[in-house]
Structure formats: C-alpha cells, structure tokens
C-alpha cells in the first residue's frame, strides 16, 4: 500500500487539512475532494490550460501538479476570485466582450489573465498573447478574448 500524505493547504482563502494519495493531482484534489469543479480538465497533459489555477502567485496547470505539492501552499481557483456577488473585473470583461462561448476554457483563461495582470499591469498585445498561448480555445478564435483582456486592463486603470 502506498503511503498517504497529510497536507495543509489554503484554497481560495480557506484552510484544509487533507490526507492525499501521492498520485492524486491538484486538479483531482480540487474537483473530487473539494468539489471545486470550476477548474476544468481538458487534456490532463498540460497542453490546453483549462485546468489553470494560481499556485503561490503563479499560474500552473493543476493537472501537472501533485496534490501533495500543495502542502503549505496557497491555491486560487475560479471560485475564489469574485467578491461576494460581484464579479471580478476580469470576469465581467469576459462576459461583456463576448469572450465566452462554451465556457470550458473560460476559468483557465480568466485565471491566467489574472496572473498576468498581477504581474504586468499594463501588458502589450504581444505580452497578452505570450501569456495566454497555453490556454487553448476552440470556440472563439481568441479575438474576443483579447478584447476582454484589454477591457479588463481598462477597468483596472
């Protein structure tokens, strides 16, 4: 039998003590143990970005992080960024710009955008594309996603 590991992790500001199997990914932990199903599994190989979350300030593919690695870490998921009833400005920009179609890539897209704007408050279009290249979208052709990011930048000024 493999040994399970006790971890303490903070997800969206809430602290959890959890016993996890080593092979469980952070994605599985969030979706299966914490019922935070806003984080999506698109490929489980780090190629699509649908499972993006912010881990200690950095955006990562949660499918390529083991749950045990979240010990003593802070995780932000899509469920953790709106403020009460109010949408986060990035969320609102995605709605208003028509950047949401099927919505499956949307949580990852928004968290990557958030990580970007936390790091680079005023990104150029090139910065935006460089930051978001790992978030695949099959519906929108990305045009309105770029609009949304630009709108979010405008709102944050």
């Amino acid at each position: 039998m493999v040994k399970k590991h006790q971890i303490r992790t903070t997800v969206n500001g809430e602290e959890y003590d959890l016993l996890v199997d080593p092979k469980k990914t952070l994605l599985q932990l969030l979706r299966e143990n914490l019922d935070l199903t806003g984080t999506k599994e698109g490929c489980d190989e780090g190629e699509c970005g649908a499972c993006s979350v912010i881990l200690d300030g950095k955006v990562v593919n949660s499918c390529l992080v083991l749950a045990v690695e979240a010990d003593n870490a802070e995780v932000t998921t899509i469920e953790g960024i709106h403020r009460g009833e109010d949408l986060h400005p990035i969320q609102k920009s995605f709605v208003d710009s028509g950047a949401v179609q099927c919505g499956f890539c949307t949580p990852g897209m928004i968290l990557t955008t958030k990580a970007m704007l936390d790091e680079i408050p005023d990104p150029s279009e090139e910065d935006i594309k460089h930051y978001l290249e790992g978030n695949l979208c099959r519906c929108t052709g990305y045009s309105k996603i770029i609009d949304a990011v630009n709108l979010a930048i405008k709102h944050s000024k």
Binding site: G46, V59, V60, N61, L64, T112, H130, Y131, L132, E133
Partner: peptide, 12 residues
C-alpha cells in the same frame, strides 16, 4: 527560455 511551452509550463 521564453520559447519553451506555455507560461504554465515555464512556471514549473
């Protein structure tokens, strides 16, 4: 470094 994978990959 910048041309490797995506930001999510480069962070890890």
């Amino acid at each position: 470094a910048s041309s490797l994978g995506s930001i999510q990959i480069r962070n890890r």
